[in-house]
Amino acid sequence: MSVNWFRFSSPVSFYPLAGAWSYWFAILAALLAGAGLVVGLVIAPTDATQGDAYRIIFIHVPAAWMAMFIYLVMAGWSALALGFNTRLSAMMAQALAPTGALMAAIALWTGAFWGRPTWGTYWAWDARMTSTLILLFLYLGVIALRSAIEDPRRADRACAVLALVGAVNVPIIYFSVQWWNTLHQGSSISMTAAPKMAMTMFADILIMTAAAWCYTISVVLARVQAIIVERERGASWLESLIDLRPKGTH
């Protein structure tokens, strides 16, 4: 391929690109979420066994998927940051962590409110809930480490190592929690006892997942822009940004 991808690895050329993408993905996310919510809350038929409580899965499942997936993407950027020593990769990893933590938190919260009517309890030590909780701790660890290290370049690399160690551990944690769960629990409670997937339901989960994707891309790119401005302060190219955004406008 003749495209010089490293060109985009410099914050200079990436900043305006991130702004444009953030904008368009935000619109896309809003459209998809709007459609997904209408289908999920209104059009999809009431489930025979779970009633309308099942409608929570339209946010629960996409959030849980995103929480898992964002960690992998973050680890991927971390690996690039360590391997090629590119500033932008580290900034991407830094920008992904809070949104990943947010997705894990949403998955846990909505899981609790789904669990109460279906299992009769807000919190069950279900394998997926438990590993999502540990995943949330891993995110919080990365964020805490970042804020505990003064020098941003050192924080970049320390967080990258932590994210990679975490990524190796995520499957092990997942497996071990699953194992522990099957040994200790009766078969009464299980997330896999989800209502039988009707076609509309499955389609809507996909729509909502696509919306979550677009939302994540949009908000992460916007955060990367903020991080670039915060960290590259003093770099001469940044001064030209001021002209792009005159005082008083947004």
Binding site: G51, D52, A53, I56, F113, R116, P117
Partner: peptide, 8 residues
Amino acid sequence: MGGYAWYV
């Protein structure tokens, strides 16, 4: 929400 308003 069919009685599940609080949760949903």
